[in-house]
Design a binder for these strands. Structure first.
Lengths: 205, 205, 205, 205
DNA sequence: TATGAATGAGGATTCATTCAT
DNA sequence: TATGAATGAATCCTCATTCAT
């Protein structure tokens, strides 16, 4: 908290503000045009900064998008981190339902942005990679849950936790994309009920 | 086997040949460059035809690709049409395993091409649509199977066949893409065993 | 009327029919798409003939259009040929009004086609030339009329008949294009009245 | 003459210079190739700038052309604005002659460019529009003149000023195009004499 | 006379990114 | 830190026309 740090902070604050402006303008722009059609030009115009300025803060469009995506992804990470300690098959079912519900609800809450994310995944390897990381995070967490259940003799032992977790997450993820893109007529409840019923009964004994 | 239909116009035969040349050159080009980087220019050079010629037969790159894709997709359609009439839970498990095995094996056999298909799906709405059609075909077929099993009191009745079929196919599809892109270290057998175990035990009583 | 001529006629009739089909399809196509956007491809498809067939009868799109235009142009030629033999200034005014009226009415009657003609003039030197011929025809005829009036001491002598005819026709032509393209709010009557009033009073004494 | 406005950004000066280079090269190119055959590629090569640079300053070829045309059009506008306040029929005739003379002389002075303008009018709706605006400007001004003369009892009252102005300008414009394209053998003087004689005697009493 | 397969020249335009200031 | 002028690669697709049959 010396003076030098304060002065620095003053400068940094300006920089931070510029960065925020760009981020904000970026989100609006992506939401308006989609990932592909949004241009850096659009963004800097909306942020009222110079061309080069965007490149001071972000390597390119992909990186700018990924940083915008980050907050959202963090919310997903939090969902992934939910505790899972069922004492019985019934409790497991309950907790699993809860998790699926949270996961899908979050995606639906951020439908518009997730829709752009979906588009961006198909277009940018970097962003695809970022999503794969989220996916792996979820899968690891689910694997842990499965192993916990196996150790407690709740889940069948003749399956590989990792693989089962993968398959399970894949189903969830795909339904998520469909919900996000409004390409399904099923209700959230129906999806959750059916998904978890098969999974929980298949895995738990 | 009468003249008119067989002889059909030496001219048309020439045309057919040209079309085949283009298709062949197209496949090679896509395999070599990937979907995005392959250009019509590459293709006609390889086919040794004039520029406009490609446009006589195909509206654009997407359409050309889709026609090349078609043969492959037909193989998938055949897999989707496999009969499914289990008399018991054990038989069901067996038949399901068989189907998954066929589905994934086909994809692996055509790994290279499927990898390009994956790329193209993210890039061309038309091709995405074509793949979605395949998907729905599979899902419909699986729904039928589930309903059959439900009617024969093999499968649990408190689930929606369509929805379960969707979730089940999604898992399979996602693993398929991973296998195709070599992005998994699991063996085909492991994948099949774990996927079907959960699914069959979850669905069948 | 010998047999050979009849047989020949039979063949020629077929040819004539094909030609007519093309001409008819051409007119429809030009009317539908305009000159520029109409393609030979559109036309032969509508005429249900082969590609090359159009080129058997017409050198190119311009020529095909000009032949379609011909009937219309002939109607203009007829208007241009109208007799003009006034005995007095009043009669001259009357006859001039009549001519303008016929000229503009014809153009309005064929508004749609004339609109395409206008477009084509700007796009094809050949068609521009064809229209220029019509124009010269009118101007020559008007020159004759003026000279007739000059000889009869009806019209002032200190002007060049050719040049006056030109100027007079130009006014008429320009109003004609405006009427054809609906780019004027004046009524036909107003136009005629004002045009002829100035002209007749300027020329006739 | 203060600093801020004058100094304006060495950078902007450079930009302005580039823009001028492009404009200059554009004019040369259009003059050399005509409107249709001139390409942006030709222009940037002559201006020694990068491809995209042209698009920084001008939306497309049409816009570039219109800006080049602008100077010329401004000269026309000035001619259109000439005062007209005759006290007698003779003075009116004199002043009208003067105006026609200025109008046609200007066009002849810029013969080459006007020839390209004529071509461009038939090819680009935007440019056609730009010319139509000039035309309306002239017509409005002439209308005013006619009304002035009518109020002073110099011109006949039984005609519509707007309409007469239109017809009169049309004649002038058409002769102008002919002079510009060398498609007439009449001398400027002959044209002026004949045009104005009819018009002035027709309109003025 | 009729066909239709094959041709290929040709130019506009975008936009992410750089770099000198 | 901020700017913004300049860049230029890279590909699409049309369509009138020909010519061998």
């Amino acid at each position: 908290m010396t003076s030098s740090t304060d002065t620095l902070t003053a400068r940094q604050q300006q920089a931070l503000k510029t960065r925020q402006k760009l981020l904000h303008a970026g989100k609006e722009t992506f939401l308006e045009y989609g990932f592909q059609k949004a241009t850096i030009s659009h963004i800097i115009k909306k942020a009222k900064t110079g061309y080069g300025t965007a490149y001071v803060y972000f390597k390119n469009k992909d990186e700018l998008f990924m940083i915008i995506m980050e907050d959202l992804m963090n919310e997903f990470y939090q969902v992934a981190e939910m505790p899972f300690t069922p004492a019985s098959k019934e409790e497991a079912l309950e907790q699993i339902k809860k998790q699926v519900q949270l996961f899908l609800s979050l995606a639906i809450k951020e439908k518009e942005m997730m829709s752009i994310v979906k588009e961006a995944i198909g277009l940018s390897p970097e962003i695809e990679k970022a999503w794969y990381d989220i996916r792996e995070k979820f899968i690891s967490r689910i694997s842990l849950d499965i192993r916990y259940a196996q150790q407690n003799k709740l889940a069948r032992l003749n399956v590989d936790a990792q693989l089962v977790a993968r398959g399970w997450f894949f189903s969830n993820e795909m339904f998520m994309w469909e919900l996000v893109q409004n390409s399904t007529h099923y209700s959230l409840e129906e999806v959750i009920h059916n998904l978890t019923t098969i999974y929980a009964n298949g895995l738990y004994e």
